[in-house]
Design a protein around this nucleic acid. Structure first.
Lengths: 190, 190
DNA sequence: GTCTATAGCTTGATAGAC
DNA sequence: GTCTATCAAGCTATAGAC
């Protein structure tokens, strides 16, 4: 009878996929984490595990867009906007304790809707930062490369945090991000 | 009768773990990739999949040490040594087409020997770069942070390459690494 | 909308022949 | 050292009661 609220259900699903990856996110684990039996999960997600992963990716993308990327489009000093993004990312990844779904779901997933969604999410993220950097006066190419660098550093520091159990590199990366992205471009070397 | 050579066996095992992660590396897939039946695999690795993963990690660590990190300790200009490391990493990760085991095996693996091995490997890698940067005149703290940054960027660019299918960010990261690591430290801002 | 029960396949792992 | 055959447990997914 009582229906578990969708947001909380997705939160718990997200947690499982982040921690165990796609193949490791068995229905047993999902069932235990959500408190729903297998059949109930299939009622909510007729497409099974793949649909659950898609829903989780979709929701994460929406959260990131609404909370981390949206501030980039607002007014105010560029550095401040980037700090707001960093703040939200720190929250999203729980200071480095949580993995990124774009990484966790990149193993053991055949090409299909999930992979398409991942690719699009990565592009959206990079584009949002690049657009903002261009508006701050950087050239198109520099903006694009630095935006990619930003996402690369975030992803890499999450990998390192997971491998070492140390959150410091992730937090330092977030802290330094605004200055690194906005620093004056150096002229090409001889 | 005929025994498959250990190096080639480990090559194929590595390939499977890199592509599918730990849980996705099923014995069926491993069997198909190596041409050995389940029972034969258990003859080589009595500890089963966990022992295979450990062997693969051990070998990858040795390769990295011998080919990518060892040049850092040799004589010659620091930038040249770093370029040699980058060259070997490009080879190791096949220009970004291959994942890092430290990432692939960080999902769905409980704490134990594999995790210990990962943590140690990450530390060895960072330390080798940091030592080299200190010898090049950077302060201990700057050297440590930049070494962490280097590994972070490599890992992150591999994640991005996998998510987008584009190798360019990975190659650019490797190309810029030497200059980024050796650049003159900026004085702290007001 | 949730449940129990179950189908059918795949998993990691083992026994024993050659 | 490799194989075939097999096991119990796990897996995803479904049927049908409430």
């Amino acid at each position: 009878m009582s229906k578990i609220a969708e947001p909380e259900l997705l939160n718990r699903l997200t947690q499982v996929f982040r921690t165990h990856g796609y193949e490791g996110a068995s229905l047993s684990r999902i069932s235990k984490a959500t408190g729903l039996q297998r059949a109930s999960l299939y009622h909510r997600f007729p497409g099974g595990k793949a649909e659950m992963a898609e829903a989780v990716l979709k929701r994460a993308g929406e959260w990131l867009q609404a909370h981390a990327l949206q501030p980039l489009t607002e007014s105010g000093p560029p550095e401040r906007r980037l700090r707001q993004m960093a703040e939200k990312l720190d929250e999203f990844y729980e200071g480095g304790r949580q993995s990124c779904l774009l990484d966790a779901l990149s193993f053991g997933v055949e090409q299909g809707a999930i992979r398409d969604h991942q690719r699009a999410a990565m592009k959206t993220w990079v584009d949002a930062i690049a657009t903002m950097l261009r508006e701050s006066g950087l050239s198109g190419r520099t903006a694009q490369e630095r935006a990619e660098d930003a996402v690369i550093r975030i992803q890499g520091s999450l990998v390192m945090a997971r491998a070492t159990g140390d959150q410091m590199p992730f937090r330092r990366t977030l802290r330094n991000l605004p200055q690194e992205l906005l620093r004056k471009p150096e002229p090409a070397r001889a």
